[in-house]
């Protein structure tokens, strides 16, 4: 129990301008291994405040393992991880990670609690961290978060088994946003969505990120997502982050994997699509206007 008598304490944000404030996520010398199988070796990564960082890499290169290490679900063999100024790797048990109220996580399948309705799912973190919030306010918060994630109001009373895959992702996003986090982790948010739904989800993430001032750590295989909304992209290969930068910067490097990734037929198609949408005034460069041009983007892509 903390001093103010609450069950779950919440950390104080770092002072503005400090290193921890500038880089919400800092990973140094990370090593992860399952038995003899080494996933990461000497991996370094910095995520800047207020950016959307895309993480790419071939299947099995440990993108999800990296995310699980950062959020404290996977104990690394070596290295240090700092999130919002708090060391994750030195935490002795779950209770030591008191920054959990300042991040939100969207798992690949949504990971909604299957016995609770969508609204109740969103209310879980609120109940856990802020028990003083009245029922009325909590219901209202849950409702506008669900609506903000692009679900209709009727969805609040539905159970996860009654939702489609895309709706589950949106509901998962609503739960990830429940506490107004500074940091959002997204594990393949557009996987399994149709192209129009995926484009709409990309724009939703972009607009939420800009409105709420989020820092986003985004794992994806979706090249359109990379071109449309990511400020920088980190490439995982050879057990570490081999390059971080904007897509033009990455294409300029001569690593064979990066070259074949961005210059393959899919990479070129995504680039062409993003150039078309830039010409229409949407995409990462001009995402403020996204909502009006959404329908056009779907038609063009």
């Amino acid at each position: 129990m903390s001093e103010d008598g609450l069950l779950t304490a919440c950390a104080v944000p770092p002072p503005p301008g400090s290193e921890a404030d500038q880089f919400p996520i800092r990973v140094r010398g990370l090593k992860n291994a399952f038995g003899d199988h080494v996933i990461h070796e000497n991996l370094d990564l910095d995520v800047r405040r207020g950016e959307i960082l895309g993480v790419v890499g071939g299947s099995g290169t440990g993108k999800s393992v990296l995310m699980r290490s950062i959020i404290g679900l996977q104990i690394p063999e070596a290295g240090s991880i700092e999130v919002l100024g708090s060391p994750i790797t030195d935490a002795r048990d779950d209770d030591d990670i008191d920054i959990r109220c300042r991040w939100g996580i969207l798992f690949q399948g949504g990971a909604l609690f299957s016995t609770l309705t969508v609204a109740e799912n969103v209310e879980v973190p609120l109940r856990e961290f802020y028990p003083e919030i009245t029922d009325a306010l909590r219901h209202e918060i849950a409702r506008y978060k669900v609506l903000l994630s692009g679900l209709p109001a009727e969805a609040t009373g539905k159970y996860p088994s009654e939702l489609s895959g895309g709706m589950k992702k949106r509901a998962g996003l609503a739960r990830a946003l429940a506490l107004d986090p500074e940091l959002l982790f997204l594990d393949e948010p557009t996987a399994g969505l149709d192209p129009i739904g995926a484009a709409a989800f990309d724009q939703l993430i972009r607009s939420l990120q800009q409105t709420l001032g989020l820092t986003v750590f985004l794992i994806t295989h979706d090249l359109d997502t990379l071109y449309e909304i990511c400020d920088r992209v980190a490439v995982i290969a050879d057990k570490r982050v081999i390059a971080v930068g904007t897509i033009p910067e990455l294409i300029a490097t001569d690593h064979p994997w990066i070259k074949s990734y961005f210059n393959g037929p899919r990479g070129r198609a995504a680039l062409a699509a993003s150039e078309r949408s830039d010409a229409l005034g949407i995409g990462a460069g001009a995402a403020n206007k996204h909502s009006g041009a959404l329908g056009t983007a779907g038609d063009q892509a």
């Binding site: 209202e140 903000l148 109001a153």
Partner: peptide, 18 residues
């Protein structure tokens, strides 16, 4: 923030499913 919220939620629909 107020613009974003008022755009999606008009505070009329009750929270369903309680």
């Amino acid at each position: 923030l107020i613009a974003a919220i008022s755009a999606v939620d008009d505070n009329t629909s009750p929270v369903a499913g309680h």
